[in-house]
Amino acid sequence: MTPSEPTSASPAAATAGDAVAPSAIELERRAYRESRRRRSILVSLLSTIVLAIALGSVVLGSPGWEQVQQTFFNPQVALDSLPRILEGLWLNIQVLVFASILVAVFGLLIATLRTLRGPVWFPVRVLAAGYTDLFRGLPLIIVLYLVGFGIPGLEFTERMPAAFWGTIALTLTYSAYVAEVFRAGIEAVHPSQRLAARSLGLSHGQSMRRVVLPQAVRKVTPALMNDFVAMQKDVGLISVLGAVDAVRAAQIETAQTFNFTPYVVAGLLFVLLSWPTIRLTDWVTARMRAREQIGGIV
């Protein structure tokens, strides 16, 4: 009976949460991992400091720094221009909120239209495809001009504020991008999922809504967030239509003081605006990775 040495323990002991002290070898491994961790923190800290010093000395040591500092980084000008720029930024945020909602709705709609099967839907598919082709190719600034100055010329409506037309133009352009992202997500859902849904008797629309789209949206959330961040800063382009947003406000301030600091202020505010979204994107992406990919250490 020598070949088999049963390490059998009583089943009762197996279920108990017996806290066994780690072995010496495990403690040594933990100590080693801890020392590696400390080392990498130290290295990252050091390399950051070295880089910061190098960059700082190049910029601050340049011959024109005094002049640049006065023109671009003047604290007094910055403080004076802040209220008007903030007021402008509020308009950007309003446009952003409306445009995001519209983009989500239209993007999803167009993506869904492109997935419709059957000859009856041919013209719809072609129109949806043509739309995404056209508006992804067209520079946003041209769309802004055409929509902002062209459509009011038709005189369908009474005079609308520039921000209104800006929102429409942003929606037109970004819906095209977002539709393509959604479509990529829909196509990335394995056909067996659609098959399983149809086998249960769900219609095409039902399988899309209940099975395919929920999975598709999850797959493309990081890409969608990325488009949202891009739109967040492109909202600043509505200033070309004359809307007094943060960029326009900075322009007005700059013209009054002959100092470019207000642009820097507006730029920083846009960065601050996008920062939470960028962090949120990272967080959502990391969480999805953790949930959907097991065996995470490879």
Partner: peptide, 8 residues
Amino acid sequence: DAGRVVES
């Protein structure tokens, strides 16, 4: 079984 070798 339950994370132990019962018999080998």
